[in-house]
């Protein structure tokens, strides 16, 4: 699915030749890589915050993204009619992001309070198991609701895809490469979210607590910080960010709202967070760029040189394995927590 955009980009490439071919190929890869990196950072940032502070690898993160995609879709499908203008649709989209962020944050906070909290003092294994159980339940609930509405849970929600304004759905020519307006918009949204999270982490008192708690939760407590409350807040915000990623993906024809979106995004999130390193938001951003550009480059290689369609996904995982072997703590992780 993710190959579709680049497929069209490189179909364009094949028509040209020589130096122009190489140059536009490069531009195509850069644009594709940026848009993918933007999506990946959206997908991974909530996971990264939670993993960083609590050491909990939340397997349900992808399912939260999937639910966010459907919720965002509901807002858009209900509010948008054939008449609705492009700008209004854009405003509605940002309202949907705000609404989904709110709902998912509340849901995440409730989840932390009820089922995550009792297992902090157990082996990490149980956190994986528990959140994986949540995946089973959330995916099935989503499937039930989607089927109740007479839709196919396995395939993308076309009605939601159709609510994107025309100027985003259209293709534009940049340096001889055609790119969908939406992909450029994704870069913008990704940059906005990264800026917002970075500001939250560095400019607010709560962000300071989170950065300190990620490094040494016990010391933070001994300085009078209610770390349990911080856990609840961060789990909530992490879930909210998962929802925001979902709303963005709901518009993207390479992804779209569907139940399998959960696992698809979960695996991407894992790769990015682990390559970036535990407890480092900077690492997550760098890793998202790295993985995004790897995906884009390999998609280009597949389109032009190798006839193996699974190439981008396989190389992404091999990069993960390679990084873990060389630097178990990830690119920006703390050495002493690596390997645990």
């Amino acid at each position: 699915m993710s190959a579709l955009g680049a497929a069209l980009v490189s179909a364009d490439l094949l028509l040209q030749g020589g130096v122009v071919d190489l140059f536009s190929g490069l531009v195509g890869v850069v644009l594709d890589g940026l848009s993918k990196a933007a999506l990946f950072v959206l997908i991974a940032s909530g996971l990264s915050l939670i993993f960083g502070l609590m050491g909990v690898l939340n397997f349900a993160h992808g399912s939260l993204t999937m639910i966010g995609a459907y919720l965002g879709g509901v807002v858009m499908v209900v509010a948008v009619t054939g008449e609705t203008g492009g700008l209004t649709r854009l405003v509605l989209f940002f309202l949907a992001i705000a609404a989904v962020f709110g709902v998912m944050t509340a849901f995440g906070a409730a989840m932390e309070r009820t089922i995550i909290r009792p297992i902090y003092d157990r082996a990490p294994l149980f956190q994986i198991l528990l959140t994986f159980g949540v995946v089973l339940v959330l995916d099935e609930v989503a499937r039930i609701v989607v089927e109740l509405r007479g839709m196919q849970p396995q395939s993308d929600w076309q009605a939601a895809l159709g609510t994107a304004p025309d100027f985003l759905a259209a293709w534009y020519e940049i340096a001889g490469v055609s790119i969908r307006g939406l992909y450029l918009f994704e870069v913008l949204v990704g940059a906005l979210v990264v800026t917002a999270i970075a500001a939250f982490l560095t400019r607010t008192r709560y962000g300071l607590y989170i950065r300190a708690g990620s490094e040494d939760a016990e010391m933070a407590q001994a300085l009078g910080i209610d770390i349990r409350q911080a856990f609840t807040v961060v789990f909530g915000v992490g879930a909210g960010l998962a929802g925001v990623a979902g709303v963005m993906l709901m518009w993207d024809p390479r992804y779209g709202a569907s139940v399998p979106l959960g696992v698809e995004t979960l695996l991407i999130g894992f790769i990015v967070v682990i390559i970036g390193g535990l407890g480092s938001f900077k690492g997550t951003v760098v890793a998202a760029l790295l993985v995004g550009f790897t995906d884009a480059t390999m998609t280009w290689v597949f389109q032009n040189h190798v006839s193996f369609p699974g190439l981008p996904e396989m190389v992404m995982f091999l990069v993960l394995v390679g990084v873990l072997v060389v630097r178990p703590q990830g690119l920006f992780g703390l050495a002493e927590v690596g390997g645990h």
Binding site: L208, R211, A212, E215, D216, M219, A220, A222, L223, L334
Partner: peptide
């Protein structure tokens, strides 16, 4: 504490501020 337990990735200012 023993071994000082700095928040190594926080600046000196931030270490003071958080306390």
């Amino acid at each position: 504490p023993e071994e000082r337990r700095m928040f190594t990735h926080l600046t000196v200012d931030e270490n003071v501020r958080i306390a």
